[in-house]
Nucleic acid binder design. Structure first.
Lengths: 172, 172
DNA sequence: TTGTTTGTTCGGCTCGTATCGAACAAACGA
DNA sequence: TCGTTTGTTCGATACGAGCCGAACAAACAA
């Protein structure tokens, strides 16, 4: 009876474990997210321990990491005791935007700063001797700027809007 | 003299090491790419050993990995002996497209298959008992389909075209 | 053929990370 | 107040990844 349903959910959760791995998270993180995703209400740490079989400390670490990247949320302060409860962020586009803004955008900013500094350093020197190197660094900076432009547009809009904008053009 | 230039290049290469880490590669991979990026001609494995200080076996593994994901290319068959030489792929957008197509697109296809299978399984059962679970899985499938659409448009066009399409709309 | 150069594979070492259980801290209920 | 529940932090262990040197394989030169 319910068993069949449980099997189907288990399949989906296992799929989430695989996905988590692809995106640089642990399988355990995928499972925790999966349990939250199918839960009717926010889930406490003891309940996650019960449902996943992981140790309390492990769940504590996983929930912290997932909370930090915005994949789950702490639903603190609520009827019951001081139990912390977690709910999943179901808008995956939002999660992606968050992660890219936190890490990729950051990395691009740092890289751009390094490249500009390098160009400044080379600018003070004999042109011919460094021209080829200067050109290469400049190209890299251009490429990065282009990627940054692309990324910031994607990060500042809903997935629907981006799709709509592209489809209304002649790209597809 | 040349030293100053070497320092600037070293800064840029170290930046590439950091970037490589953010994107799930090893620092050593970033360095190898950096050396190739500044080289005037394709570089052999012994030369990479010389320039990076890494062991021959390490360079062998790194070049294989970078070649697989399309960040560098084997320039085999060439004037000299049987030495294999490597050149960098400088079109980073092309690299990104490759990686996303190889891994993310693949993961999304697999997930979609799992989700559809789950929906089929639930379809045979009593509607009311599984309606909420079915709805959740369906939403996940929808989200994934949307992300796939977005991704495939981005992966099938040049960065310039995608940027142009978006800017010609009213998104920015 | 035989020695040399080049590249891959293998075994081992190190280090980081995931995980556990236990100790600790904080908040709640009695 | 004191015990109980909840959550975090702290070593300890285990497993995987990066890296190395050595053994091996393959191609070239003499």
């Amino acid at each position: 009876m319910d068993d069949e349903i449980a099997v189907v959910k288990e399949d989906v959760i296992e799929s989430m474990e695989r996905s988590a791995e692809v995106y640089g998270l642990s399988r355990s993180a995928g499972r925790v997210y999966g349990v939250l995703y199918f839960a009717d209400d926010p889930v406490s740490i003891p309940e996650l321990v019960e449902e996943t079989g992981y140790a309390k400390s492990t769940i504590s670490n996983i929930t912290r990491k997932l909370t930090r990247i915005g994949m789950i949320h702490r639903r603190s302060s609520e009827g019951g005791g001081r139990r912390v409860r977690f709910a999943p962020e179901t808008d995956l586009w939002f999660v992606i935007q968050d992660v890219f803004t936190q890490y990729v955008d950051r990395e691009m900013e740092m890289t751009q700063r390094t490249l500009q500094q390098a160009l400044d350093d080379l600018a003070e020197r004999d042109i011919d001797a460094v021209e080829q190197d200067r050109e290469r660094i400049a190209e890299l900076a251009d490429t990065y700027e282009q990627l940054q432009t692309l990324l910031s547009v994607a990060m500042d809009n809903s997935a629907e809007d981006v799709i709509a904008a592209i489809e209304q053009s002649d790209l597809d």
